[in-house]
Amino acid sequence: MKAITCSQWLRYMTLALLIPVYAQAAEPLTSWNDGPSKASITTFVQAVTTDGSKDFVPPAERIAVFDNDGTLWSEQPMYFQVLFSLDEVKRQAPQHPEWKETQPFKAVLENDHQALAAAGMDGLLKIVGATNTGMTTEAFTANAKAWLAKARHPKADKPYTEMVFQPMLELLNYLRANGFKTYIVSGGEVAFMRAFAEEVYGIPPEQVIGTTFLTQFQPGDGNPTILRLPKLVHNDDGPGKPESVESIIGRRPLLAFGNSDGDLQMLQWTVAGNGKRFAGLVHHTDAKREWAYDRESKIGTLNKALNEATTKGWTVVDMAKDWNRIYPFDSHQDN
């Protein structure tokens, strides 16, 4: 082996010491355009993670919570779990011959959109309850994963797990790299989200909080299971979000991100804490690459939360202006 000189050794050691610095200095949030939204995020993170800063927060207290539908992935033309449930009506129909003559299931089987719309929210809740419960948690998770593996979004013709927002994936990674623990706190049903959250977002099941059905332990014959019952236990929307955060996490979040009025109370609860806090909203303004909607939308209504964000100086992410990519399969787009 050829000997190295003292000066060569010093160069190698200097390079080795600088590599972590270069890596740390690498540009974070590459799918975010430079501007106030990106700056507000990086400035906040630097302030609460820099040792010696007046705003420094210990890693154990760095809790970040995110809504899912409309915040981490798309929610149009309908919440994805509802689309899953509609498909499940058709898949499970042979085991339920009565559905052929019973609304709202009859409307789904006959593709009668008018009758389905007339059934309203009560009809959708019946569909979700009938297709998402009455089985073990393992069976439901298997059903959800099977659907996610083969179903395609009606507009993009992509798997639903690819309809996630690339900028938000980068934000999750950026926060975790800076000592944050990331949680999903969503109105979506918890078991459905747990079927994909770890693989897609890097968020493990124990850090997924959502709407829950009643469950019941079944001893079985040496093979115990957990049965999902058609009774709603907790609606994780609106005030239900800070309630579940307090009950399950036990710490007030340092950062919260949402996209609708259903996230307002979670954002209010977050910023009401002591010290520096961050509240963010994803504003769907890009009709070309995604959708544009807010105050009048029946899905993901953003009205009261948008008003409060404007009044209180929360970060409102303008999707069309602030993101140069929407989905992982998109190419970089200069705006």
Rank of each mutant, 00 (worst) to 15 (best):
T14H: 12
T14F: 12
L18Q: 10
P20D: 04
A23Y: 14
A23W: 14
E27Q: 14
P28A: 01
G35M: 04
K38V: 09
K38I: 07
S40V: 03
T50V: 03
D51A: 15
G52C: 05
K54D: 12
V57T: 14
E61F: 01
R62E: 02
F66Y: 08
D67K: 04
D67L: 04
G70Q: 00
W73T: 06
W73N: 06
W73H: 13
P77W: 00
Q81H: 14
L83E: 08
L86M: 10
D87I: 09
D87K: 10
Q92E: 11
A93Y: 00
P94K: 01
P97W: 03
W99Q: 09
T102I: 10
Q103W: 04
P104Q: 09
D112V: 02
Q114W: 06
A117S: 15
A117E: 15
D122M: 07
G129H: 02
N132A: 14
T133C: 00
T133N: 00
T136G: 07
T137A: 15
T141M: 09
A144F: 06
K145F: 10
A149L: 02
A151Y: 02
H153A: 04
A156I: 09
M163S: 03
V164M: 12
F165A: 01
Q166F: 01
M168K: 12
L169T: 13
Y174I: 03
Y174S: 02
A177S: 14
F180R: 02
F180E: 02
I184N: 05
S186Y: 01
G187E: 08
A195Y: 05
A197P: 14
V200E: 12
I203H: 13
P205C: 01
T211D: 06
T215I: 11
T215R: 09
P219C: 10
D221S: 12
G222I: 00
N223F: 06
L229G: 06
V233W: 09
H234V: 12
G238D: 01
P242Q: 08
P242Y: 09
G250A: 11
P253A: 05
L255R: 00
A256S: 10
F257G: 08
D263G: 07
M266I: 02
L267N: 09
V271K: 02
V271F: 03
V271N: 04
G273L: 09
L281N: 06
V282M: 11
H284I: 06
R289L: 03
W291G: 08
Y293D: 11
R295K: 15
K298V: 15
A305H: 10
N307P: 05
E308D: 13
E308H: 10
E308F: 10
G313C: 10
W314C: 06
V317G: 07
M319I: 05
N324R: 12
R325V: 11
R325Q: 14
Y327V: 03
Y327I: 04
